[in-house]
Design a protein around this nucleic acid. Structure first.
Lengths: 193, 193
DNA sequence: GTCTATACAAAGATAGAC
DNA sequence: GTCTATCTTTGTATAGAC
């Protein structure tokens, strides 16, 4: 899945950066080309149209997380709280940029104006993360490391939605430490009583 | 603040509906004009440009909530849990449309691509709701109706971000009852132990 | 207050030279 | 693989008639 030319990779890099900042509909081939340092038609040589490029960005983003989630989950030396701390890290990294949010959070904000092939990828990203969180939470509850109330599924939704919403609200309000406050509060609510 | 002509009001109605579905950058005067049943240049007669129209939509949205929040908070017959239940109602209503999210949630997703005057209004909306929630939560904790852990400010952020994120994730995944599950989980975590 | 007509820029996309 | 040139559509905005 990594059979991408160096230029194609840089196009995806720039496109992802711009989408995380401004969304999909606000950006154009020209903006991306300028960031890469090439001209508009050169992009079409690597990706046939804007929707295909947009989809490729999400596919790569999703795969990066898939690998990371799997490897973290498979580590037997880490308990559920350790695993969750690792999961939160990319979110705080994004929040620290002050200009970006989650790629899929940005796209989901303009969901009804996305090409069909992008909608599917964004939805898959969300479902994948929700399922992964549910699995981690359930395991943590089973062995007593976690002690939240209610089913793991509901807490997974609360955590994931709070992270996505947290990034969006934090960027707009530009309040220092907003997301960290949310994460701390989440951790307080999943610890055993 | 309600000195708007009937046509101007309908323009705001249609524009708000479209933004909640598709965002600000995905829509145009043509889309709005079509929804209202007038021609493109007629919109400019009511709002000088797109940014002014966008700002007017957010200002009106914000004012509607301001009135509602104040009246709910001022009702002495309702305790903090009742007040929060009323606060959640508009969110579940939006989720039930299956196509919309919070107006300001949609705009915040493309925040860096918004005109400056819209950024300010969106930020104010978020800060206003966060402050209101903090106030309600603190009052509920003080008189024992609520029993969450940590400061009211952190729980206010968690609740608000989860609602905003919940709308976004619910629409993209199209899962029935997603937001209700999040709200139930929130309520479980703010009740006294 | 709404319209037709138009100006002007930017968008996505294609053709073909190098 | 990248470019210039071009096509077509759509976007915001303006001018001026009704």
């Amino acid at each position: 899945m990594n059979d991408l030319s160096p230029t194609a990779t840089r196009i995806l890099d720039v496109a992802q950066d711009l989408i995380q900042k401004s969304g999909y509909n606000a950006i154009s081939f020209n903006h991306i080309a300028e960031g890469v340092g090439i001209k508009k038609p050169s992009i079409v040589h690597h990706f046939p149209n804007k929707a295909a490029l947009g989809r490729a960005v999400v596919v790569r983003y999703r795969e990066t997380f898939t690998v990371a989630l799997d490897s973290v989950q498979a580590d037997p030396t880490k308990n559920a709280l350790d695993v969750l701390a690792l999961y939160f890290k990319p979110y705080t990294d994004i929040a620290n940029t002050r200009e970006k949010i989650c790629l899929c959070g940005a796209l989901a904000g303009e969901f009804m104006a996305l090409p069909e092939e992008m909608k599917e990828e964004v939805a898959s990203f969300f479902k994948q993360h929700l399922q992964w969180l549910r699995s981690i939470l359930q395991a943590g509850k089973d062995d007593g490391v976690l002690g939240f109330c209610g089913p793991a599924d509901a807490m997974a939704k609360l955590i994931f939605d709070a992270l996505q919403g947290g990034l969006i609200v934090a960027r707009a309000t530009d309040e220092d430490g907003h997301l960290n406050g949310v994460i701390d509060e989440l951790i307080k609510n999943i610890r055993p009583a």
